[in-house]
Structures are given as C-alpha cells and as structure tokens.
C-alpha cells in the first residue's frame, strides 16, 4: 500500500465530510438530513480505515470502525423513526417547520 493511496483516501474522506455538512445545512427534507449525517459518519469511517491501513493506529482502528458502524446504523434507525413520527404528526417532512420545542 502506497502512501499516496492512503492520502487519497483521506482527502476523499475530507471531501465527503464537506458534502455531508453541506447537505445537513442545505436541505429541508428530513430524509436528506439523516442521510447527510450518515455521509458524515461514513467520511469518518473512511478516514479511520485509511489510518488503519497506514498502520498508525494498529488493529484497534478496525475495532473502532466496527463500533462506528454500529453507532451510525443505530443513529439512522432512530433518525428515520423520528422522520416517520414527523410525517405522522405534522404531515410534513420539512425540518425548518419544526422550530419550536413544544407540540
């Protein structure tokens, strides 16, 4: 494994994180928002995998990657449950409409 491959993967993870942040801010639909958070998670996982492949964190990086995957998937489960609850209660998927704490 060459050094450039690792660096390329790290740059890709930076780009994906940027796209995830953009999607988090730019979209109204909650499905987009949840998937953007997933994209951020995946960027972090990609960076961790690249660093593991670089030998910087040892085998612990892979264990951390698996934990990240579990956390990301549980997050998306709760996120889509929230999305469905939103759709049921307000008949709207627009996150900008949900701007008050009560009700």
């Amino acid at each position: 494994m060459s050094r450039e491959t690792i660096l390329f993967a790290l740059y890709l993870s930076a780009a994906l994180a940027g796209v995830g942040v953009y999607g988090l801010f730019a979209r109204r639909n909650i499905v987009f928002v949840v998937m953007s958070i997933e994209l951020l998670f995946n960027a972090a996982i990609l960076a961790l995998v690249a660093l593991t492949a670089a030998g910087l964190v040892g085998l612990n990086g892979i264990a951390a990657v698996l934990f990240f995957l579990a956390v990301g998937v549980s997050e998306v489960a709760v996120g889509f449950a929230l999305a469905i609850a939103m759709l049921r209660t307000r008949r709207s998927a627009d996150v900008t409409e949900f701007s008050e704490l009560r009700g």
């Binding site: 494994m1 060459s2 050094r3 690792i6 660096l7 790290l10 593991t52 492949a53 670089a54 030998g55 910087l56 040892g58 085998l59």
Partner: peptide
C-alpha cells in the same frame, strides 16, 4: 501525510 512512510505494511 508528512509522517506517513513511503510504503506501508498494513497491520
């Protein structure tokens, strides 16, 4: 990237 060696053995 400066700290990465040129060729890397995966762990």
């Amino acid at each position: 990237g400066r700290f990465l060696p040129a060729t890397i053995e995966p762990p």
